[in-house]
Amino acid sequence: MLTLIVLLIGLALIAGFVGSLSGLGGGMFIVPALVIFAHVPMQAAVGASLMAVVATSAGASVAFVRDGWTNLKVAIVLECATVTGAIAGAFLAGLASTTVLESLFAVVMLQSAYFSLRKRDGDLPTSSDRLCRRLGLDGSFPGCNGSSVSYGVANLPGGAALMMLAGLMSGLLGIGSGALKVIAMDQIMHLPLKVSSATSNFMIGVTAGAGALVFLARGNVLPMVAAPVALGVTAGAIAGSKLLPYADVRWLRAGFVGALVLIALEMGWRALTGV
């Protein structure tokens, strides 16, 4: 029993670390890791992955919010779009073809990976556009030598539209959609990558938390798998949140692109095989 718990905590630690650094939540890493390496049944792995996303969000957000990496205003505004999408997804469940959605998701991930590779991190707006200025969405993050670096925010409607799609995917496919959230902020709204990652971490816990409550209430979570996973992920997420301020943005972006390609492959596989 001890071996199993140690293995689950170890796998979850890595997932939480990567999930908090990338803003993807760790859910996409934990399901294959549990099934392939720990031989945990798929149904239990999916339940544990929802708990993992909540734990990543909670663990990482403590430091990200306190240190000023999370843009709270952007998160609060965009959560409206995410929740709207998730509710729409809940109503549309069973009507839309999951194969089409998974294929679409895979294409969006590949396209985003391509645009992420081409993006130059020096191209950040220093002032917000009119709507974002009106809502006071611009912010700052800790720079070198105790200084703070100001940034502007642009294209809220475009970002909100992609967030709605992220919520829709969550409602329809039961995934966290952390990747779409980071893309919406990084590529559409031109927030700095580290701010996008920290803000995505803050946001993903909300929809995942609601989903996890539903799973738990139905008895669809295996506590003796989810408990060590949640503990490992929390520790990994806290460690990741300590490292993010010092991480090289180029390496962070390269890791993010790699994760997008992996998600695209996973979604493509799901679309092709129906698994």
């Binding site: 809940a90 469940a93 929809t207 938390g209 609601a210 139905r218």
Partner: peptide, 20 residues
Amino acid sequence: SFTAYVLVGLILGMLLGRIG
């Protein structure tokens, strides 16, 4: 009003039992 909207949405989602 933004946060109230999110709260109502989450509660509705939980009642529907398919969010997340």
